[in-house]
Design a protein around this nucleic acid. Sequence first.
DNA 1: CGAACCCTTGATTCAACTCAACCTCTGTGG
DNA 2: CCACAGAGGTTGAGTTGAATCAAGGGTTCG
Lengths: 256, 256
Amino acid sequence: MNLDISSDTPQDLAAPAKALPTIKVACSNCNLRELCMPIGFNPEDLHRLDEVVEKRRKIKQGEKLFGTGDVFKSLYAIRTGFFKTCVSTEDGREQVTGFQMAGEIMGLDGIVSDHHNCSAIALEDAEVCVMPFADVEDLSREFPVLQRHVHKIMSREIVRENGVMMLLGNMRAEERLAAFLLNLVQRLHARGFSQSELTLRMTREEIGSYLGMKLETVSRTFSKFSDEGIIEVKQRYVKILNPDALKKIFNAQTCA
Amino acid sequence: MNLDISSDTPQDLAAPAKALPTIKVACSNCNLRELCMPIGFNPEDLHRLDEVVEKRRKIKQGEKLFGTGDVFKSLYAIRTGFFKTCVSTEDGREQVTGFQMAGEIMGLDGIVSDHHNCSAIALEDAEVCVMPFADVEDLSREFPVLQRHVHKIMSREIVRENGVMMLLGNMRAEERLAAFLLNLVQRLHARGFSQSELTLRMTREEIGSYLGMKLETVSRTFSKFSDEGIIEVKQRYVKILNPDALKKIFNAQTCA
DNA sequence: CGAACCCTTGATTCAACTCAACCTCTGTGG
DNA sequence: CCACAGAGGTTGAGTTGAATCAAGGGTTCG
């Protein structure tokens, strides 16, 4: 399984944002642009990209950005904050389908039926760029580089979900959690954060839902990794002490 | 979870194909067009659609249409036959990520990295239309209705995978198999086949891989349904005797 | 006719679940 | 400043659904 997203996600995001003179909603001077928008945009066309963002929207921790069944109009690019997306059955069971962080796009599930198929909930105070999908489509007819980018984003989501299917269908609890941690830390690293330390934004229950296991099993597995000296855990804080051990668990558990 | 695909897939496909005077590769006179291509195409523009299909390709049972790592150039629309797609880990475990039938599109996973992320293997002799993706992109810049259609196809795949995640993460063996059967029969029905009878194209092991269970469990669950009079099974032949019971299992197992 | 593959069924094992108790934070209000 | 409530996290004991191991039957095809 491929955890690498670096091919399309440049990593020089740690550059400090200039204090903007006005609160202009614009991609062209957004320091996340290289994560969520295509590179190789013609400089003189770059400002056209700004049209795609209608406005920004702030979402408080615990609030819903959109819910299952809501009419789909826009995609959302995360500027700050952290989200989970989840689907649920009629009898109320929830499945977390993903965790999203700055620069990632949400809402693609809504295109097929003009209604959202999942809910997006902020796990911390967040801000998103609202991109009306009709505008995205219009603009991407004009700019092949944007068109290609939209296709890649959707394809990446399909590939990601393939990986989750592998996780859920074939792997044991330890492998799932190892894969989860490696994936999280890798994405955070691409955003300028530490390669070895992270603060979880989600509860054990949410991790469990994503990984197809119960919160107790998540907790036990964390403890096991900790006992083995692979990680250090204190509540939401996690430090990866032995990334190689994690990688080994992730892709060779059976042979151990 | 939504098993319904009817919103975008007209069902009048049972119409007999006229014997074509020449073996012209063309969407405009393909009897599957309404399944795999957009409706609402302007009659005079319809023939432009034909450009998208470069050629056809026959694949024998057991053969690979494309494999993980292969360079991505084209999408494939199934004309006849039945496929499975699967990903695998470094240590050789396989996960079937889907089963595809006539009118469905394969290859979307390759867009993000220009390389296929999964393998597509024919489960019976098959024929596919090869659609170079560059041409699809060119043409969809010209025709918004095609552009929208491509987006919907990708979004539908994302939504489908969300459903599989729910299946794998939250459901018990019986629910998974019930959901699987209902989904299969529904898609077959949309193609003019029976609503209650079907012949499985895949082995118990492949079903198990898709549903995250072992082949013995698949077999046992089939037997259980059979004992309960819900279905009739004889090897690959399955007849659904009590669809309501299946639906009940699928979305309320916990409350039983 | 035999080999290979697929499927079914039974017996046993085990990883993860359930249930339950307790601990640790964090924030609030007296 | 402390008490306390409530949410989240940990850990233990017992249970269980599905996996594993094993044997045998059916179908297909050279």
